[in-house]
Design a protein around this nucleic acid. Structure first.
Lengths: 147, 147
DNA sequence: GATTTATAATTGACGTATCAACAGTTGACT
DNA sequence: AGTCAACTGTTGATACGTCAATTATAAATC
């Protein structure tokens, strides 16, 4: 049984590395940046902390991604006048266009990858991963409290 | 349906990032390096190309990891006298000791993470990921052939 | 109001992955 | 034996994640 668990850890890494690369190759934007743009698309304006909480990656990484996306004019950043610690991030029309342009490539790629799976299969794996994410998050938080 | 698939991509990344960090925190060795050591443990001597094929990460990354592990005396490298292009990699007794020392921490962590899942659940997810890995590998290889 | 604590974002340093280029070697062919 | 293609490993540069330290600001406390 231990063998399966160790196998699962590294298998997740392998799959992630490959899917991330495939995504970038097909859509010409990284998976993380795409997720940032997608989150912005559904909101008026968000803080970088919101992005961090949603994506569960380090604040520093958010800053770096957001700065690059701003340089590409895909989003705008402005200090929040109501709270000068916060930076508000909003999608530009150019950013919305990019998401639209990505849609066909994305759907084609997803179809090619997932055509052999049922919705139930995929939902099962998603639920599995969600609970695994929570469990590992919990264990990491426990470590923090002990220091 | 698209929503589930996009969600799955980034969810895999989040889970991988967290599990990788948890693994490192608990065992004090990175997941990739642990896998290298584990592969060496089961073989007499292997080439770096063997490691690359097994782990499915870039050759450059293998070289860098193996060099560090050699510095730590966990493995040895020697040119293959039968083929001077190849470097043969073997585990040291210190390396074997390290794997032994990791075992308890690893089992404890795995138990904590997976105690709520059945073997069937885990096997299902592993099979799912294996086929997803193959599908993405196939799509990436197709890209290469077109260039 | 003054002080302390907490928060948000940024920057530097580092680890680990990728690609590209390279050096040296082997295998296939003439 | 000479040439070319393929192979193996290495190195430099880059991307992207982490942690730690920092700056500025808001919130909490006295």
């Amino acid at each position: 049984m231990n063998h399966n668990h160790t196998e699962l850890f590294f298998l997740l890494k392998q799959v992630d590395l490959q899917l991330t690369q495939l995504f970038d190759d097909k859509l010409d934007i990284s998976l993380t940046r795409y997720e940032i743009m997608r989150l912005l698309h559904h909101e008026e304006a968000v803080t970088q902390t919101y992005l961090q909480r949603k994506l569960m990656i380090n604040q520093a990484a958010i800053t770096r991604h957001v700065k690059v996306l701003e340089t590409k004019e895909l989003l705008k950043r402005v200090r929040n006048p109501d709270n000068n610690r916060e930076v508000l991030v909003t999608v530009t029309s150019k950013g919305k266009d990019l998401l639209d342009q990505c849609e066909l490539s994305k759907v084609t790629m997803m179809h090619q990858l997932f055509e052999n799976y049922t919705d139930e299969d995929i939902d099962f794996v998603i639920n599995f991963l969600h609970s695994l994410k929570s469990a590992s998050r919990h264990m990491l938080d426990q470590e923090e409290e002990q220091t």
